[in-house]
Nucleic acid binder design. Structure first.
Lengths: 254, 254
DNA sequence: ATTATCTATAGATCTATAGATAATGC
DNA sequence: ATTATCTATAGATCTATAGATAATGC
């Protein structure tokens, strides 16, 4: 499994301020990080509206009102979680959208990166994408990020579809072949996101196998055969190593 | 698009009882059906916890407390919606699990039926499957139905995987080939469910194209090529007609 | 008499704010 | 003085129940 980002920003200074009433279960993390972690856990488990600020505070070991010293609102907590979750994928997609490699190889690398990130994240935070609240205007910025990500997928996918499949689409499906390609983008994007439900239903023992299965399945949907997939897959491994190196570099820069 | 079920049970008798304060926007439906429709709309749009019984009642044109004459609780409303949504798929799967046709043809028919049902249902009720509340013990019966459906998919998928792909799984992925097949089941099941998010993001203009794209993509993932898919697909069309005939028959019986 | 609504309300939340307090830092 | 907590609470919900009421049916 690859590491990426996941830096803890505020490494906890000392013991300023009034002591907590409860015990501090994670003294290594700053209070803000503890709140985000507890909120992620509860939002994923019960949903946003069904999670009270009291429940979050209880898990952290502070009083409900103390949350508001760190965050101005419950919504803001969700927004930070959403942005943090999508951020690594955006960085990977931005790099891969212009990297020097075949589009199919870049797509394969992106799919591997994304699925691995979703499977590796704490508390299956990918489920937050599907919370009904995310459709509120309040979270438009997050949805814009997702849309950017989808755009990179769309570009790479349209370049990865084999001529053979492209012919099929025009032939058997519809006079408007462009829309059929759009649906293929949706299908591939959906396959990547399906790791979220899969992980929710049966917490995966073997993430690597699932990541490979999905990446290979995506290429098959785009018309590639086993031989072609083998070639693409091994080139993608090298690109993925390069990618993680670049992302770590960026991390140090920012 | 195929029709299936969607029978209105209680066709509204007459005007018994105290008149409503508001106007009745759907006098053709019984009060219970109006409540279910309004709840479906709001649960899909805002989620379960974020939808108040007051909001449901307002949409129906009655007072909040009047809901409780028709349903004992808000949870019960959600349960009826969940059960009704999964029911047609269960019937189709039960029939197809033993129908006389190649497994690949039966799988193709099931995928077409399911995706079309999800795309055709009022208010995109498939999104209800993803509400966090559904994980509560309260909805175990619904989850059991879904699990039954998944079982039929698993059986048909394992019989539809080409020997070629089966060889690949054992060879390149893992020593435990059974688990790799399980992941393919997840992937295919996930592709079917992806129509829910697709419809949520961009309400589909052309359901038929999307249904075909997904069914074909599933077969590709299982190792079939264009020629094989064409044959399977046309046999599936005939089976699908037979299926809808049988389901309508059942409908009359019950 | 039965049905389907209504009004009123109990009791339990829930978010966010105001202001007090107990630490450390300077 | 600054920081990070605490207590207390306002004000706005929200679900479900109790009992009244306005129709139709017999």
């Amino acid at each position: 499994m690859w590491h990426h980002g996941q830096v803890i920003d505020a490494p906890k200074k000392s013991d300023r301020g009034r002591p907590r009433s409860g015990t501090n279960p994670r003294p290594d993390l700053s209070a803000s990080e503890q709140i985000l972690d507890a909120a992620a856990h509860l939002f994923v488990e019960r949903g946003y509206a069904a999670t009270s600020t009291r429940a979050i505070a209880e898990e952290v070991g502070i009083r409900q009102a103390s949350l508001y010293y760190h965050f101005p609102s419950k919504e803001q907590i969700l927004e930070v979680l959403l942005m943090r979750t999508v951020e690594p994928s955006i960085h990977a997609a931005t790099y891969l959208s212009t990297a020097v490699a075949e589009p199919a190889v870049r797509l394969h690398a992106l799919i591997e990166f994304d699925t691995a990130a979703l499977l590796g994240a704490a508390h299956n935070v990918g489920t937050l994408y599907f919370l009904p609240e995310v459709r509120n205007e309040r979270f438009a910025a997050f949805r814009a990020e997702r849309s950017t990500l989808r755009g990179v997928y769309a570009a790479l996918i349209s370049q990865t579809i084999t001529d053979h499949i492209r012919g099929e689409l025009g032939e058997t499906l519809t006079p408007d072949a462009a829309s059929a390609i759009d649906y293929l983008v949706d299908v591939v994007f959906g396959m990547v996101e399906s790791v979220i439900s899969i992980r929710a239903d049966r917490p995966s023992e073997d993430a690597a196998v699932l990541v490979d299965t999905i990446a290979q399945s995506c290429l098959r949907v785009l018309g590639h055969d086993s031989k072609s997939i083998r070639v693409i897959s091994s080139s993608a491994s090298a690109l993925l190593i390069e990618l993680t190196r670049v992302l770590e570099q960026d991390q140090l820069g920012s």
